[in-house]
């Protein structure tokens, strides 16, 4: 069930967070440039961060039906036209923080514009507020606590999804389908869907394993690979291991709050 060679590829990639980081920032820098691949990079970034932006917009009080349009407006107007990507740089800190600040400002502007009849476009059907927001005091401070948590939680979800993809791909490439199946049905699926974890006995029977120790060791090894993959994803934006650990902690807290 184990071979050092089988693990070489993931271990090598998980030990190269600096390289991965450069690659990811390269994508952002490329998207902000006039290079032939800039369009593709911009599309990739927009696709990647759509869920987190959408989660913020949705929790800001904008209806589900309109959230898609507002999210798209942010991506087109701010990320692309106002060159948000050009302002992003590794030395300026986390891309997540920059993006969150921009989304927050965009949402505040939009919500205030909606509350002000004189500033509302006469023919606007893109931005309309839900009743609760429309009926509020137009000078009241906007409570953006929930939207920010939704943004962080969705970001964490994205990172976890990507880490899962990396581990699944590793398992397939290295013929570790049994290990993947055990990890997926015992750990991942229950976490993602609330499904009942499959018992050790079921795995032993299904995969002709001779002892519960094999299942336990498979699970912990796959957990380690998953954590390495997750750290690598986060290392795309932070090279400092302590920062990455704090980032994981922040994101998981956001997820826990969301799942309560």
């Amino acid at each position: 069930m184990n071979s050092e060679n089988e693990n070489t590829e993931l271990n090598r990639s998980s030990n190269s967070s600096a390289g991965a980081s450069q690659t990811n920032w390269k994508t952002i820098i490329d998207a902000a440039s006039n290079s032939p691949t800039a369009g593709q990079s911009r599309e990739g970034i927009a696709r990647r961060y759509w869920p987190a932006i959408h989660a913020f917009v949705r929790k800001s009080g904008i209806s589900h039906a309109e959230a898609d349009d507002v999210t798209q407006a942010f991506i087109c107007d701010v990320m692309l036209e106002r060159d948000l990507l050009a302002r992003a740089a590794p030395e300026r800190g986390r891309f997540r923080s920059l993006l969150l600040t921009s989304v927050r400002n965009f949402a505040i502007d939009e919500l205030r514009r909606r509350k002000s009849p004189t500033r509302k476009p006469a023919n606007s059907n893109v931005f309309s507020l839900d009743d609760d927001v429309r009926s509020g005091d137009k000078n009241a401070d906007l409570n953006l606590d929930e939207p920010e948590h939704a943004f962080h939680a969705q970001w964490a979800t994205m990172m976890i999804d990507q880490a899962i993809s990396v581990v699944r791909e590793w398992a397939i490439v290295n013929s570790q389908e049994v290990q993947w199946d055990i990890f997926n049905r015992r750990i991942l699926e229950p976490m993602r869907t609330g499904a009942e974890p499959i018992s050790t006995e079921t795995f032993m029977k299904q995969w002709s394993l001779t002892s519960p120790a094999q299942v336990a060791n498979t699970l912990v090894r796959m957990k380690r690979k998953f954590v390495a993959a997750l750290m690598e994803q986060l290392g795309n934006f932070d090279d400092d291991p302590d920062m990455i650990h704090r980032e994981v902690s922040t994101l998981l807290q956001a997820l826990e709050r969301k799942t309560r």
Binding site: P51, T157, M191, T259
Partner: peptide, 12 residues
Amino acid sequence: MNDPEKTFALPF
């Protein structure tokens, strides 16, 4: 594209 409202059933 991910489901924007997707969440996890249990913490990690």
